[in-house]
Design a protein around this nucleic acid. Structure first.
Lengths: 204, 204
DNA sequence: AAACCGCTAGACAGCTCGGTATAGTGGCTG
DNA sequence: CAGCCACTATACCGAGCTGTCTAGCGGTTT
């Protein structure tokens, strides 16, 4: 019990850390359903029993992955980078699409992990699907905040529309539409302008 | 060989028809990956061997389902209804969202079958995924046509943006966002208006 | 030294999957 | 009547899945 907390900093990484890392890589790149626990354990260089000692079921492992995805992808990458790239709230919102465009061109682009997890769990009450809804809400809350700062008339509605554009263009890009993200950005710009806001310092 | 063509009209439906119908219902409502061939055969009231006599593999059955989906969903329903509902090209485009809204409220709403099929096949060269891209292109061609008739400046780009809105709002609705479709429609209206087109006879 | 602990390795249960093999049945046609 | 044909029923294969069990190893603590 006490041992779990004091993982020494400079070690070759504990079993749990390797499990988390392997699950993150595999579930991100492919999806939760298509990756088996044996694959995760093998990639982590860990015995299967060790994995099941840390996570009592694959569902729990999947939930841990989604939390990690929120931490690394949503918070650190998406949120962090947009805040950094944009000077004004409007520019930050548009920066989302700049990030998406670069991301979607990477060979390991896997579309949205949350969307995949959502669509591959048919039962709406499944814990994974419930968690996904929470993660979508997290992203939404971030968008709502920016929409408020930008001075939109209806931040909740605006954020939802923005999120629809985000999801839609990621899937279109995944389907092979190279310019979907760029063109979705144009719609975003239009949406911003319709609020009477000059998308300050916009790049195109 | 000759027997296949002359299916008598008023019969209790042939084995093949029942297979097609069962596959359509099950693959539509759930997804291709989550439904096994045994389930399809059972639902069709057909022996598994009969199914494999008509379709040599599940992939072939899936491809037949996608073709049927294009025929029934894309052509008959989406395309047919929008043409019927809208007086002008702009109104037809907006009618897509009216259809989506009613559809997304149905208890058996399953999000877009093409999108699901796309996301659950990781290999970009998989025949199912290739076929899905073709079906997305079919919808796009229909949108391009309407965009041309509406007089948009860049019909190809406009159609892509419209499709991004369509996909995005369906997934948002599937995630439980009841008003996602309606708000996506508002973006569509904005997009139309930005082309200098009064969305003639729009209903809101 | 003894107890303990996290971990390993591998077998295994029980299930579902796609796909195959076999034997047999009922009806239409020569 | 005989042959054919689409179809049925059922067993089966090999693979993969989640999850469990066991036996043992190596290092730390008391």
């Amino acid at each position: 019990m006490a041992a779990r907390a004091k993982s020494p900093p400079g070690r070759p990484s504990s079993a749990r850390e390797r499990i988390d890392h392997a699950a993150y890589e595999l579930f991100s790149r492919h999806s939760i359903r298509t990756i088996g626990v044996d694959t995760v354990a093998a990639r982590a260089g860990v015995a299967k029993m060790t994995l099941y000692k840390h996570y009592p079921s694959k569902d729990q492992l999947a939930l841990a992955f989604l939390r990690r995805r929120e931490e690394l992808w949503t918070r650190s990458w998406l949120q962090g980078e947009t805040e950094r790239l944009g000077a004004t709230p409007g520019a930050k919102l548009l920066a989302v699409f700049d990030l998406f465009e670069a991301w979607s061109r990477r060979p390991d682009f896997e579309a949205c992990a949350f969307t995949k997890a959502l669509l591959e769990h048919a039962d709406a009450r499944h814990p994974v699907r419930v968690a996904v809804r929470g993660h979508i809400a997290t992203i939404r809350a971030f968008l709502v905040e920016l929409a408020k700062e930008a001075g939109t008339r209806n931040p909740a509605r605006f954020a939802q529309q923005w999120q629809v554009l985000m999801i839609g263009c990621l899937i279109a890009a995944y389907a092979g539409e190279a310019d979907a993200v760029r063109n979705a950005r144009k719609v975003g710009r239009l949406l911003l302008e319709s609020e009477g806001l000059r998308a300050a310092r916009a790049r195109r």
